[in-house]
């Protein structure tokens, strides 16, 4: 376990030092600045009939949607980057020459990247709450925000794991694009099959639909968990069957991690 913590710390340190996180914070800060400026303008010049609190909640929702999409891209970037840079700089061979198993190395890198993205996510959310609260003159903090944040940790972990898998075999750009496309396909399959009955799902099963169904069955449902997180943060109703999704996740997430480990075990460094 000590080795996992060390690799995890090293991941955080190396990504922090790469200044990528700082750049992302600056971008987030600019977006948030534009959002609060717009909110302030509305407050001073346009709004009369709506309550400021309702508008603030709407602004937070908008920011949260941006944050969600952005966090998946960041997950892809950190997931792919952490493995790829090790491989390209020759650090992976050095790391694996230590008394550490490949599983510990991979887990350390995965947890390190996950911690980074979650820290970015939390900080951005806190910034948004402060910024918007200051603009509207009322604290818009709710416990549901943090439940949403915790729920979003699941799709973030899945996207990081997918990116790491691609990065074992592809260069950074290829891994980034592949993860992005696979995530898009998974989200689409998730959206389609989640809404359909089993009967409809299996009738007229062509190649594409069959492939989508397989992906829907074997991969964790990124968008279901994202939707659930959104419903908490935006305080809206959700249609996600939570127990069913939790059971599916309990099977597919370990399966995904086991698949990555099996691939990495065979990988020649």
């Amino acid at each position: 376990m000590n080795a996992v913590i060390l690799v995890c710390q090293n991941t955080i340190q190396k990504e922090w030092r790469s200044k990528a996180l700082l750049f992302l914070f600056v971008i987030t800060f600019i977006i948030l600045g534009i959002l609060t400026a717009g909110l302030s303008y509305f407050n001073d010049n346009i709004l009369t009939e709506y309550s400021m609190e309702a508008v603030a909640t709407k602004a937070l929702s908008m920011f949260f949607i941006f944050l969600n999409v952005w966090s998946y891209l960041i997950s892809t970037y950190f997931g792919a980057g952490t493995v790829r840079s090790d491989s390209e700089q020759g650090v992976m061979a050095q790391m694996l020459s230590f008394p550490i198993s490949r599983f510990e190395y991979l887990l350390g890198r995965l947890l390190g990247s996950w911690s980074l993205v979650m820290a970015y996510y939390l900080m951005s959310l806190i910034l948004a709450v402060i910024g918007i609260s200051l603009t509207v003159g009322k604290l818009i903090l709710s416990f549901k925000l943090f439940i949403g944040l915790m729920l979003n940790a699941i799709p973030i972990l899945v996207v990081i794991a997918l990116a790491m898998t691609f990065a074992l075999y592809l260069n950074m750009i290829q891994a980034f694009i592949s993860t992005f496309l696979l995530t898009l396909i998974l989200v689409s399959a998730n959206g389609y099959f989640q809404e359909t009955t089993v009967k409809v799902a299996i009738e007229n099963l062509g190649v594409m639909k069959g492939l989508g169904l397989i992906l829907y069955i074997i991969f964790p449902h990124i968008s279901s968990w994202g939707d659930l997180a959104n419903s908490f943060i935006l305080d809206i109703e959700h249609k996600v069957p939570v127990l069913q999704e939790a059971l599916h996740l309990a099977v597919t997430l370990p399966l995904l991690l086991a698949m990555i480990w099996a691939l990495f075990r065979k990988k020649e460094v």
């Binding site: 190396k14 020759g90 061979a93 020459s97 008394p99 550490i100």
Partner: peptide, 18 residues
Amino acid sequence: TKESRKEISYLPEKFSFY
């Protein structure tokens, strides 16, 4: 195996670190 690497150290040809 992890055990086999407990008492060894390896220096690659092009040593590089962060």
